[in-house]
Design a protein around this nucleic acid. Structure first.
Lengths: 192, 192
DNA sequence: GTCTATATACAGATAGAC
DNA sequence: GTCTATCTGTATATAGAC
């Protein structure tokens, strides 16, 4: 049964991978079914077989991105012997590694395209940001003694995430990684 | 002479105003000449008269946005009796006032659409971000004694701006202003 | 300056053969 | 599952009348 379906699952996954690269560079609106099909070596009608509408493609992209992200985050927070500085550094590293090939965070890009998203995609996106916030605020809470600031952890988490998302956007314009680097310095300056 | 041209200038200005609202909500790619024309009560071919290509429209939008922004910034930095806290609060307020009607910063939106911009628009955008950075770093420098952090002012400026841009994006998803508020708290916590 | 009309290209999406 | 073919809508952009 799983073998029968594996062909389809692999193709769908493959399409998702290609689409994700495009969306993290140029956005969802700028990616057409035709372009996606060309890159995958098939026809656009075949892409519609896997993803009937664009919102279905976006749904799959967000879902997978969130799953990978939350898995990475759990890897970090499960290190009970790590200091806050180490955990936060690892968190920042996730964003640093995104800044390759003129890419930004998938969710940051889709947030910019918010007005053009389906209702379902919008709430998906909201969940991802809320989960990220909650995770980071949780980590900060369990290491409260290592914080140099009296700012509430939830607000600190929101500021950190917003800063990283914005830094990825702006660094693309400059063609370097100065903002992401600056954001890292500022964040770590708040940790003992 | 100026009277003769005023008709055209006004119409062009009017189109720019309408376009700016659209771009700050849905992005440049999602705004068509037809939509812009409809909103202005004219035909799309007439829009092309003022802005031959989309890049020409974007150029005008960035130029005007930058001019207004830099004027606002100079108003702030010219207040020699203002404290750093007051100046930075005024700076943040510019972003807060943007978060109306599901809008984001024009430059933040265009940064997200970076890959789809013309070369000219790209360098325009880069100049705006560099100017903002320079301005904020300059303000921070002249009030160094009022800073609670040892982070270099240029890096601090980059982090603040990135945080504000990102906060506008994320707050749209949640439908509130929590990130922008959080960013403000964090920024002001770094100032005496 | 603004219009009608149109050229051209591309978008999302579907029908139906294989 | 993938294809060809196509429908329909919309995009940028231009030509030329008024």
């Amino acid at each position: 049964m799983s073998l029968v379906e594996s062909g389809m699952t692999d193709k769908r996954e493959h399409l998702q991978q290609i689409a994700q690269v495009h969306v993290q560079r140029g956005g969802l609106k700028a990616l057409s079914f035709r372009t996606l099909a060309d890159d995958a070596g098939i026809k656009s009608s075949s892409v519609h077989y896997y993803f009937p509408e664009k919102a279905d493609l976006a749904e799959a992209l967000i879902e997978r991105y969130a799953a990978v992200l939350m898995n990475d985050l759990e890897q970090i927070s499960s290190r009970r012997n790590w200091s806050l500085k180490k955990k936060v550094s690892a968190f920042v590293s996730i964003f640093e590694s995104v800044a390759k090939d003129e890419a930004v965070c998938l969710c940051g890009m889709l947030a910019a395209e918010y007005e053009n998203l389906s209702d379902n995609n919008r709430s998906q996106l909201n969940v991802v940001f809320r989960d990220m916030e909650k995770w980071l605020a949780g980590v900060l809470n369990t290491h409260k003694a290592e914080l140099n600031t009296s700012v509430p952890t939830l607000q600190l988490a929101r500021s950190v995430i917003a800063g990283l998302e914005g830094a990825l956007m702006i660094d693309r314009v400059a063609g370097n990684a100065q903002c992401i680097a600056a954001q890292k310095v500022v964040i770590l300056s708040l940790i003992a």
